[in-house]
Amino acid sequence: MTIPPGGSDDGGLAAEPARLVCARCGASAEAPQLTWTCSVEHGTRRHFCVTCSRENLRSIEGRLDLNRW
């Protein structure tokens, strides 16, 4: 199957945007949100709003592997 540049393989059906929910405060937004933080913890993807990300930046950085620094 050939898909034209800029085209999609959805058969003409547009997928609904995923709704993000902050794992800390419950705030929600349409995806994607460039200001939100995404974390994978124990194999589960969690999203954090910009406010929670800023308030917990030290905790987030503290979980990074040393090779990420």
Rank of each mutant, 00 (worst) to 15 (best):
G26V: 01
S39T: 11
G43T: 00
R68A: 14
V50A: 01
T37W: 02
T51R: 03
S59F: 14
S53L: 04
A15T: 10
H42P: 06
P32C: 06
N67S: 15
C52H: 02
R46C: 00
L20V: 08
P17S: 13
R46M: 03
W69L: 12
C22F: 02
E16H: 13
R19C: 10
R63V: 11
V40T: 04
L20T: 08
C22L: 05
T37I: 00
A27K: 07
G12R: 05
L64V: 08
T51E: 07
F48P: 04
T35K: 02
C38G: 14
G7T: 05
F48V: 05
D10M: 15
N67E: 15
E55K: 11
A15P: 10
T35W: 03
A29Q: 04
T51C: 03
G12H: 08
A18I: 11
A23M: 04
N67H: 14
E16K: 10
R58W: 09
E41S: 10
R68C: 11
R58G: 15
V21F: 09
F48L: 10
I3V: 12
P5E: 03
R19L: 14
Q33D: 09
D10H: 13
R24P: 05
H42C: 11
H47Y: 12
G26I: 00
P17F: 09
W36I: 00
E55I: 06
L57V: 06
A15D: 08
